[in-house]
Design a protein around this nucleic acid. Sequence first.
DNA 1: CCTCTTTATGTAAACGTTTACATTTTTTAG
DNA 2: CTAAAAAATGTAAACGTTTACATAAAGAGG
Lengths: 355, 355
Amino acid sequence: MSTMRDVARLAQVSTATVSRVINSPDSVRGKTRKKVLRAMKMCNYKYNALARGFATKKSNTIGLIIPNINNPVFAESTLGVQEYADEKQIKVILGNTSYKVSQEESLIKALRESQVDGLIITTTNPKGEIIKTLITEKIPFVLLFSTVKGGPVSVVGVDNYRGGYIATEHLISLGHNRIGMIAGSFSVTDRSYHRWHGYRQCLKDHGIPYNKNLLVQTGYSLSGGRDSIKQLLNQELSPSAVFCSNDYIALGAIKGAREAGLSLPEDLSIVGFDDMPTASYMVPALTTIRQPAYDMGKRACELLLQKMENPGKPEQHMMETKLVVRESTAAPQEVKTDKSENYWTSSDPRTNYIL
Amino acid sequence: MSTMRDVARLAQVSTATVSRVINSPDSVRGKTRKKVLRAMKMCNYKYNALARGFATKKSNTIGLIIPNINNPVFAESTLGVQEYADEKQIKVILGNTSYKVSQEESLIKALRESQVDGLIITTTNPKGEIIKTLITEKIPFVLLFSTVKGGPVSVVGVDNYRGGYIATEHLISLGHNRIGMIAGSFSVTDRSYHRWHGYRQCLKDHGIPYNKNLLVQTGYSLSGGRDSIKQLLNQELSPSAVFCSNDYIALGAIKGAREAGLSLPEDLSIVGFDDMPTASYMVPALTTIRQPAYDMGKRACELLLQKMENPGKPEQHMMETKLVVRESTAAPQEVKTDKSENYWTSSDPRTNYIL
DNA sequence: CCTCTTTATGTAAACGTTTACATTTTTTAG
DNA sequence: CTAAAAAATGTAAACGTTTACATAAAGAGG
């Protein structure tokens, strides 16, 4: 491999000039520029960005940390940051934590050693030491899908509380009053915790008593949703509607419900959260709370790059969340408006399925 | 930020010794090692992997190029390479081509400039110049999901021809004889081209005449599948079964078919290709040709690292493909063969659902 | 206690750029 | 045509490691 020195020698100029034709071509006379360009061709010169990074202390690389690339919503946000980064000639190193804090930690360490210029983190550990360290050491970073609203960190997120609230409200407006929730484990991430808060508050605001048996926490996986719905359905008073704290879980839940013999949305309404790309392709098409994952990724990247140039104040970008009604929700079969009637004594033949 | 020199000064040793306690601790006496370690703590030393990469000409980074991270099968394979790389302390830079050759080209260029130690490419351009260049310039790389079977390149793939064949054979064995195919555009990738070949040969081997109107090529997207199925269904003699060249397209096709008023699998059988993680969660659960995407990613990474150490001969790893029968395929309603019996007169209670 | 071997440490160049500063060349204008 | 200003180019140090080689220290055997 030839270096700048080789090119310089061949073109009979200094390495500085070669560097200049690469980085600021206008600052060198047309004649010499051509000479250099020709020499570069001749010795098949390949630019070494790593050496540049070393010299300038900028790697033009950022790290992107997500819990699980298999969750379509993270794939979508990843695409957002990627495409923006690409536009700006920034490379992105991807890391998967599998929702493990230790993994998140070691990834951040490795990425910092690699001298990434910044970090975009969909964290599993929002209050953790890790983040604090990043702050005190002044590493540019932004938290994606973050729940933190104030504070000294840059963030792009969504109001999860509100999302949970409007999801629940939708269900209530349809006439449901036994509304369950399948949440990703609160100990793993606090996104679903906030969504649960919204859910709970909405119930309260509508005079529906909260029943803790109607909440189940599970892993952020397809099978998590599938197992959990069965657990919910096995209760004596099973829910007529369930809010799942993400679409991926909802997909599992729908599968589980069908396996239990229910047909949706007649026997059970499901609302998800995310609006992943396939949500409208599901059967039934999923009613969900949309968060603009692609744009969020893009925004996060934009914010980060800007922050890298010019640290400035931390910025919080809270994106709009909105209810997308599709086919997975409907009015419950028997609306129990007045308290006199007992839901479970209903003679609906479908109750057979609930076992 | 403190450097090795700072540490060395503080510990009153040479930088070489500091380097040694990091890279081969056993080669330095316990006493000095401790001294150095203490000094590292004291000045909060952070290792600079970029400088190391510069000095050693190894970045400990590989590039992973895929067409579209949103396709779950690529996400899954990405996870495979990631986790293996992680184990070996290798960072992976991810690039999306959106199935554009030009993008693939520029990504490869950028990654090479960044001095990645190797490349894993799910290419959109299998015979292209790009690959040839990589060979002549001796860049370690492996092609993932590649169709090339022989030749001078390392590869992990699957026999796409055979996959297409067994998918079609399944449909034929069910009694179908008007079998369509929705293929990803042949000009974009040749994976679906090979699958189509298998499909076509299978038809031929079973005495079913090939009808070119039953093939539609489309984009590798959900909407591609959805639009294409409608096109197929609008024909005078529409197919009773369709082979989709991947699950992502199949998901779109199922949606389209439902929108056209069909119920699956009674009115139309669909078989996909990939077995993406959500395939068994779809409704109907997708019958498909499984390729072990995670393992393929892992294998590709393993192969690459090994190749990086020791170039050696190119290796071809062809993984097993297998038919996974689920719910999206069934016998056609009226069997077109001359056999006297008509399927749809069967008293199978399931037909109740077909409305 | 001395020599020989082994083990631990130090020295200094190298990796391929960038860049502040110095120097040369070109341009401008009188 | 010349001096001053402006533009182009050159010089050389710096970035933070690694590593071949040289040197010094420690251990072994007599």
